Amino acid sequence: GTMPHPKHVPAKIPEDEEERLVFLRSLNILDTSAEDSFDRITKAACSLLKVPIAIVCLVDKQRNWFKSKVGVGDACEADRSLGFCGHTILEDHPFIVEDASQDERFKYSDVVSSAGFRFYAGVPLAIRSECGKKWNVGSLCVLDFQRRALDSNQILSLQMLSRLVIAEIELRDALVRHTLNRISQLNDRAQARAKEMHASYIGQVAHDLRTPLSCIANGLRALSSTPLDAEQLQIADTMAVSAELMSLTCSKAVDAMAIPPPAAAGP
C-alpha cells in the first residue's frame, strides 16, 4: 500500500536469514489453515494477559504470517518491515514495547500511526532443526491499543504459552513428515508391485506365445517339404524367419523377467 514513513527503520535482518527461511519453509506450515491446537493458545494468551490481540506469527521473507490470531479480524499477514516480530526473532528472550508511540523504532511505523498499536510483547519461537541448531521462526505475541507494562508473572505466562506453541509446531512437523514418508513408502510399494505385475504379465504373454509359435514353425516346415513353386517357397521362408525372430523375442522376454515357466502338467 502506502510508502513507509521516511524515518521508519525496519528491524535488521538476521545474519543467517537464508538458512532460517529454508528451515521455516521445511516445516510446511506457512499458508496452512487454522488449527484448534494453536487457536487454544492464542485465546489463553488473551485471557491470561487481558489483552485484545494475540498472534502466533511466523516471520517469512517479506511478511509476518499468522498461524493463529485473536482480535485482528480477517487479517492473516502483515508487512514484515513495519511490524514488531522482525525484532523479536533477533532475541533469545521476550521483546517488549510498553508504548510504541514513544519508541524511536516504531513511532513512525504504520502499525502505530494507522493501526494504533501501543503495546507489544513477543516471545521468540525457537525450533530445533535436525542438526541441533535452533532457529527463531517467529513469535507468540500480544498487542494492545493502550500502553501497558507486564509484571514478571505475566511474562512467565507468555513464555510458558510460547513453549506450548513450539511443542505444537514440532509435533505438527513430525506428523507431516511421518505422513509424507508413509505416502512415499506406499507409493514406492505400489510402483514395485506394478512393476512386478507388469513383469509377470509380459513373462506370461511371452510364455503363452511360445506354443502357437512352435505350431507355426512346425506347420511351415511341413509345408516346405511339400511341392511348392518358387513364389510359395519364398513366402514360406519369410514366414519361417519371422516366426524364428518372434520366438527369440519371446525367449528373451521370459529370461529377462526370470519368471519360472508353469510346471508341466502331470502324466
Rank of each mutant, 00 (worst) to 15 (best):
S129A: 14
K50Q: 13
G266A: 09
S37F: 05
A240G: 08
D36M: 08
D103L: 11
H178G: 12
Q159M: 13
C57E: 04
R128C: 10
R189N: 10
A149E: 05
G73Q: 06
H93V: 05
C250G: 13
I89T: 04
L140Y: 00
K67G: 01
Y108M: 04
L158Q: 00
M257W: 08
V9R: 02
V123M: 09
Y120K: 02
H87M: 06
A126H: 05
S225R: 09
A265H: 11
E170K: 15
M257Y: 05
K43W: 06
N28T: 04
I183C: 06
A264I: 11
A75G: 08
P14S: 14
L245T: 10
S184H: 09
Q204T: 14
V111N: 02
E98F: 03
D151C: 04
K134V: 03
N187E: 13
L213R: 03
F117L: 10
V137D: 00
R105W: 07
V241T: 11
L228M: 13
E77C: 09
Q154K: 12
K252P: 01
V254P: 02
D60G: 07
R80D: 09
Q232A: 14
H93F: 12
F66A: 02
L156D: 15
R221H: 13
W135G: 01
C46E: 02
S129K: 07
D144I: 01
P212R: 10
S101T: 07
L150N: 00
V205D: 07
V51I: 04
K252I: 12
D255F: 12
R163Y: 11
A194S: 14
R163P: 00
A206Y: 00
D103H: 09
D60E: 13
F66D: 02
G86L: 07
S47T: 15
S113V: 14
L171G: 15
D173N: 15
L220R: 03
V241N: 14
N64P: 03
L82A: 07
S129Q: 07
V123D: 02
A149V: 05
A253E: 11
G116T: 00
H5G: 05
L125M: 09
D151V: 05
Q191D: 13
I29D: 00
R80H: 13
L248C: 09
P52M: 07
T88C: 12
S224K: 09
A256C: 12
Q185T: 13
S200N: 14
L213S: 07
V51L: 01
W65M: 05
R20L: 03
E170V: 06
S251E: 15
V142W: 00
G116I: 03
V123G: 01
S68Q: 13
H93E: 12
R118D: 00
R163M: 12
V241E: 15
H93L: 08
A243N: 09
R40W: 08
M197Q: 10
R20Q: 05
D110W: 01
